[in-house]
Write a protein that binds this DNA or RNA. Structure first.
Lengths: 229, 229
DNA sequence: CCAAAAGTGTTAAAACTACACCCATGA
DNA sequence: TCATGGGTGTAGTTTTAACACTTTTGG
């Protein structure tokens, strides 16, 4: 095997913006750094890419190591490569974003990071490196993507009510939606299928549960169908 | 300055998919490799990222060195990092795509690549590495993006006719559009402004020239406006 | 019986689609 | 005068937006 070149190389990392949703707003997972630079500051989970793993593998590995999260929706976001973004040396980072259902994952269980926590996007601490910029890029991407790709479901449990789904869209888009129009629109795609089940333990009339039909969506996508809300 | 880590690092490159449009179809710029691996094969222009330049700078530098193209629309596409995508060693590449107006650039003038040429997307040679996959990703992105971002103009001269613009959209979307409806739609955005000029040297009635209003678009974008065709 | 959210239709306005002819120009 | 593309309007259909009340359930 011949060497490709002998010049100094940038270091290569991955960073992951993990989004979740609570009753109020969008949350993002941060971990507190215990090393310089930016010791004590909050930062996105992430770390160095090994030579024997793909970028996505590196992202999933780091995420599980640092937060315990695994088997989640993960998508490449953007690669940040400004020369001075890391004060130590040249570091290029491939950023991913992830969507999880808050209730479905216990982040503290398998975490080996001393300090991993959810923060509301509306109440963020100062972040290390250019992570504020990465986060802003991820937020913009999420807002844009949610309108024409069915990713809203990733933030909910597998079975959900239409109320919950509308709530996801309202928070991400940042504006209220009309209940009747939303239901009509969503159901008209045929991709959200009603189940013979209703929600449990609520102090009012229980709503019907629905489920996203992944298989049907995959089939339609191949035929050039475009999901849109 | 402390070292970040001492483990082996992937090499980092940039590759650029340059699109242009002729009368018939979409073209892409390729260069013929004169070194192993894939000696003699056609490949995307690109090369190694230096530690003192940003990713976009690296892309622009390589593009100018290899093809003579400069001052063009360039946007990051995706980062490809499969472990075995380069047979020599681990190489991660940040792919960009570029849009140029064929008539406006002479690719041979300042080229120091022995062999840089345009190929129709419908008649491609076998490509080196995973460049076929990068190209396919770029093509998909272009098709998707053209519908909701005003990038069609980048493939045309600054002053263009509505016929030319419609042609851009027809080729990228791969289907014919209705002339009257297209004109109504495009002009209704107010972003395409008529000039007091007509095209020259045509063997029939000359069409009016138009120009994209970048400034107005920037203003509207900030207010949440979404361009759509 | 009260509080809370579930569920459901209609109408007016706007956007989209399909479609054909006359005009201006240069060869 | 002919060939070529430039330029223009309308009608039917579909999609979107606005809007309020009754039902179910648990407390």
């Amino acid at each position: 095997m011949s060497k490709t070149y002998e010049y100094p190389r940038p270091a290569l990392t991955v960073d992951i913006v993990v989004f979740a949703l609570d009753e109020e707003d969008l949350q993002v997972m941060l971990i507190q750094r215990d090393l310089a630079p930016f010791e004590g500051r909050w930062a996105l989970p992430g770390g160095f890419v090994r030579v024997d793993e793909s970028l996505e593998e590196a992202g999933r590995r780091e995420l599980e190591e640092e937060t315990g999260l695994k088997d989640i929706y993960l998508e490449q976001l953007y690669t940040f490569g400004e020369v001075t973004r890391d004060p130590r040396e040249r570091v290029v980072t491939v950023a991913y974003y992830a969507l999880v259902n808050l209730a479905g994952h216990d982040i503290h269980a398998s975490s080996d990071a001393r300090n991993a926590a959810w923060f509301s996007l509306n109440d963020l601490p100062e972040l290390a490196f250019d992570h504020d910029q990465i986060l802003a890029t991820a937020h913009t991407r999420l807002r844009g993507k949610v309108r024409y790709q069915p990713i809203g479901f990733e933030l909910l449990p597998r079975k959900f009510t239409l109320r919950q789904l509308q709530h996801v869209y309202e928070i991400i888009l940042g504006r209220p939606l009309d209940k009747r129009n939303f239901r009509k629109k969503v159901l008209s795609t045929g991709l959200i299928v009603p189940l013979e089940e209703i929600e449990q333990d609520v102090a009012h009339r229980a709503a019907r549960l629905y489920q996203f039909d992944n298989r049907k969506y995959a089939r339609l996508s191949k035929q050039g169908f475009h999901f849109e809300i």
